[in-house]
Design a protein around this nucleic acid. Structure first.
Length: 393
DNA sequence: TCTGGGGTCCTAGGACCC
DNA sequence: TCTGGGGTCCTAGGACCC
């Protein structure tokens, strides 16, 4: 088995760090990034804030309760994006083999870079220091033969940590960790596993080795890759392609819960504008339109429909969104609404099959009309009995 | 004053076609 | 008359991640 040197590089408290660069006076203080209005949550917080028990994902009002002196700042995504680019550009100067995982983390293949290096630990220390010198950003680095182990490693020491996991040590290093630390096991599955007496990664590992039926049931397909993940035999191939979105959506929590369709329609219109603009910017057409609602009891419902012709046109998106909403959600009190275009394709990949109608009617207006008519037919389809079914009866 | 918004992937059931 | 499966597409829901 070949052994690569895969790094997971994670920026520490990235949003907070960016804000510190804008305003050094807040350095070392309890800071939370996020908005304060209805439904506001902590997006990221400083290490000082964490000492008070503040965590990301926590409602902002709760964070304020925990820490009276908490400094709350709104998200400035544009600036974070700029710093993010600086970070990726820095990494790419050392190796071209970089997979961007999110705004503040990436995987990098350092196999060739590190090949003849006598002191890898020193190398990564210098790498960290130089990043800080050039961008003022702090990072933790996990180094391992696979992406999964590298990711687990970078989480083990923060901030400014360097953690190396060799394949031969992987099982021993991961085994004592709580099951919730397993990348891919989240806040739903972890409690279920703990309930079944599976408290650590080691507990899970031994059950996998015993081919435990109960664990198999709880984990589905995931069960079958767990031992490879833990043993360092999983994926070590980085995806070097630039981000290619498969869906683009926009959703918002309303100022207050409502069942008034006039208000909701207004919101849907704004969401559709945003979705359309972003699809146009990304040069994507969507094949499927989904609308989603969240009710006051936090239940999420969605309805989607496949379009006959991929689109990113605001008018089409808006008309179909309203139709779907009226058909399925009218009268329901909602907390949140969202619109997403899915199954995105590149216009140049679209084989244009010119129908007679398209050929005849060039105006955008007519195309929209055609789509709406098509949609109406589709929405009514479940009500019609198909010929074959009638025959059966 | 309870719990965001951006995504990806997996699962499962029904429709439909052969 | 009685009773098939396999394969694919569409849709809804849910878990997970940052």
């Amino acid at each position: 088995m070949s052994t690569k040197v895969i790094c997971h590089i994670d920026l520490n408290a990235f949003f907070v760090r960016c804000e510190e660069l804008k305003n050094p006076l807040i350095e070392g203080k309890p800071v939370a990034i996020g908005h304060e209005g209805r439904g506001g949550i902590v997006s990221t917080c400083s290490y000082k804030a964490r000492e008070f028990g503040v965590k990301s994902g926590m409602p902002m009002f709760k964070a304020k309760q925990l820490c009276q002196s908490l400094i709350i700042l709104p998200v400035d995504f544009k600036y974070y994006q700029k710093k993010s680019h600086e970070f990726f550009n820095y990494v790419k100067r050392t190796t071209k083999l970089v997979e961007i995982a999110s705004v503040d983390e990436c995987y990098a293949d350092f196999t060739n870079v590190i090949k003849n290096n006598k002191n890898p630990h020193k190398f990564f220390e210098d790498f960290q220091k130089q990043l800080f010198k050039e961008t003022k950003l702090k990072c933790s680095i996990g180094i391992a033969p696979t992406k999964f182990l590298a990711k687990m490693a970078s989480d083990m020491k923060k901030p400014m940590g360097i953690t190396i996991i060799h394949r031969k040590d992987a099982v021993n290093i991961l085994s004592p960790l709580p099951i919730g630390d397993f990348f891919g096991i989240g806040k739903k599955t972890a409690p279920r596993l703990i309930n079944a007496g599976i408290n650590t990664i080691g507990d899970l590992y031994s059950l996998v080795k015993k081919d435990d039926e109960n664990a198999k049931m709880m984990l589905g397909k995931f069960f079958y890759i767990i031992s490879d993940l833990i043993e360092g035999k999983s994926n070590d191939q980085l995806d070097l392609e630039p981000w290619d979105p498969k869906s683009i959506g926009n959703s918002t929590t309303l100022i207050e819960d409502t069942d008034d369709f006039r208000d909701i329609k207004e919101t849907i219109s704004n969401l559709c504008k945003e979705v359309s603009e972003r699809c146009i910017k990304e040069n994507k057409l969507g094949n499927t339109l989904q609308i989603v609602i969240k009710t006051p009891d936090f239940k999420i419902k969605n309805k989607s429909i496949k379009l006959d012709k991929p689109t990113n046109d605001y008018k089409v998106i808006f008309d179909i969104s309203c139709k779907l909403y009226e058909k399925y959600f009218l009268g329901i009190t909602v907390r949140l609404v969202g619109v997403t275009l899915q199954n995105l394709i590149d216009p140049k990949d679209l084989v244009i099959q010119m129908t007679f109608f398209d050929y005849e009617e060039h105006e955008e207006q007519s195309q929209t009309k055609l789509l709406i008519e098509e949609l109406n037919r589709k929405l009514d389809k479940p009500l019609l009995m198909r010929a074959s079914e009638i025959k059966k009866k």
